[in-house]
Design a protein around this nucleic acid. Structure first.
Lengths: 334, 334
DNA sequence: TTGTACGCGTTATCAC
DNA sequence: GTGATAACGCGTACAA
């Protein structure tokens, strides 16, 4: 690899001069600057960001930790982060935990050893004790989509209490009285809040809250299918289900189909996220939309802002969810 | 941040001794090694991989460039890469090009400046001249899913000639004689090969090959919708369409739905990839399955093998595709 | 078995 | 304007 020294030699100047030319220093004569740049290009010189980072104390990269990149919600979020980070010359190191807490920690350690300038975490559980340690360290980080209960950290997400309410109120308005809930991991705050909203809304309307109509899974299609089957195979089953994310809802859809239930005639179904596959013809899932791409952009903007030393404008940013009514919801049968 | 110097001081030894302890050198007495490791842990020492990389000439990271992380095919592929890379302590720097050639190049430059140890490219176009330059450089890379026509580079993918044949033969066997094709970007090899297979199969069966029944788009749902509408709105339209990937096929599905065409009664549809959403109830897309996760694993394994200096076993690895018949295909109407 | 000295490629800070 | 020097944190010949 050609280094700054090689360029210096070829140009008959010192390495420092080359460095200055590369960094467009105003101290240099335009003429020499141009000449050095030309020679550097001819030699195929590419700055070693590793070495530069060592001096400057920055790696020019941020870490992004997501639970499941195969979930379109996180894929879109990742796109948003990448777009903003790359625009400012930052690299994005992606880590996929598959919901495994141990892997999450191991990734964060890896990322810190690599001296990423900051972290975006979309994986934290509500009571993660490790987060406290991270908060004590000097690695800036922002939480996105999933927040912590204990640590007051920068967070960008969607108002899930409102989103959950939107979903369940919609079902209640349609006339449903037997409403089930299928959540994600029970220790994930957004799942908890959607559940909380479910409970609150049922209570407000004095509707029954049955144990068998509540299940927690792990936000995957397979788990949604399992939970759906279990819930729908009961002797008395709900006439509507609020699934705490779209891929889970799609799993429930399959379970219902297998059991010979028609949607929405026999069962109404509401998801959460509005991934692009929710709007497919014949699926037409009613859902609560989250601006996933924008969430990623915002999280990146925020982190980048912290990295440039500017103070955060606020510590929590909550975007509004939006109910998207399609064709998986209807009044209950009978 | 605590460095090896700090640990050395605390332990009353020299920095080199600490370095040796950290690297588990056999030269050290077990006792001192253990003591140093303990002290390092107490101090919260984390090795600076940047500095280490500068010395060792390696960054411990690989770059992954994909055209569209929101396409589940690439999301799964990314999972595969991540799994294998992380298992060996490598970080994965993800870059999403959205199909933009300029962005691809700019990302590759960024990645090289960051001194990633190697590259996995899932974005190359068949005649990309930049690839030649890359091949000349000393950055190891492997191509996945999309190969080059000109540069003989390590490649892992699926036999698209066979995959395309599987798809079209299936339609022919069902009795279709008017078969359309909707491809991806025309300069992407896998799209070209699926098209080639389409043409070959039609010719072999002496079936008509009409211009209006062939369209190229960009492998997105939106583009599939556009192309589908255009093709299906013609006076004489095909009775079956082979879409070169699943998200495109889902776009066609929407177009057909809008035009009041029933699938598979009025129109048969075959996709490619077998993303998880293809198997959804009510969608049940007939498609050609690609082992996307495995493709990612293989690509990573291969690159990592190259990085460890071992010679590649071969330069091209072609996995077999598999036809998955579901419910979007049936004999033609009438 | 451990310490010393140097180098990896770059930038900041002094000199000139 | 430009060059020399030190420093970033680490690994490794070489010396002790």
């Amino acid at each position: 690899m050609v280094t700054i020294k090689d360029v210096a030699q070829a140009a008959g100047v010192s390495p420092s001069t080359v460095s200055r030319a590369l960094n467009d220093s105003p101290l240099l004569r335009e003429e020499t600057k141009a000449r050095i740049l030309r020679i550097a290009a001819e030699l195929g010189y590419e700055r070693n960001e590793l070495a530069r980072g060592l001096v400057l104390g920055t790696s020019g990269a941020i870490g992004l930790v997501v639970p499941d990149i195969a979930n379109p919600f996180f894929a879109e979020l990742t796109r948003g982060v990448g777009e903003r980070a790359h625009a400012r010359g930052y690299g994005v190191v992606l880590c996929n935990t598959d919901g495994d807490l141990e892997r999450e920690r191991s990734y964060i350690r890896l990322l810190r050893r690599k001296r990423v300038d900051g972290l975006i975490l979309a994986t934290v559980t509500a009571d993660d004790p490790y987060l406290k340690l991270l908060a004590l360290s000097h690695t800036p980080f922002v939480l996105v989509s999933r927040r912590s209960q204990q640590v007051e950290a920068p967070y960008v997400g969607v108002d899930d209490l409102l989103g959950g309410k939107l979903a369940v109120e919609h079902l209640v308005e349609l006339g449903h009285r037997k409403i089930g809930f299928i959540g994600g991991p029970p220790d994930v705050r957004c799942s908890q809040e959607r559940f909380q909203a479910y409970q609150d809304t049922l209570r407000r309307h004095r509707l029954p809250l049955r144990k068998g109509w509540v299940k927690f899974s792990d936000f995957t299609q397979a788990a949604g299918y399992q939970a759906g089957r279990a819930m729908l195979a009961r002797k008395t089953r709900p006439t509507a289900i609020f699934a705490a994310n779209d891929v889970t809802a799609l799993g429930v859809l399959r379970a219902a189909e297998e059991l010979g239930l028609d949607i929405p005639e026999d069962l109404s179904l509401v998801g959460y996220d509005d991934i692009s596959f929710a709007g497919l013809p014949r699926i037409e899932l009613t859902t609560v939309a989250q601006p996933s791409f924008k969430l990623g952009q915002l999280a990146a903007d925020w982190l980048l802002r912290m990295l440039s030393g500017k103070p955060p404008r606020q510590s929590v940013k909550l975007l509004p969810p939006k109910l998207v009514v399609r064709e998986t919801t209807a009044p209950p049968p009978g």
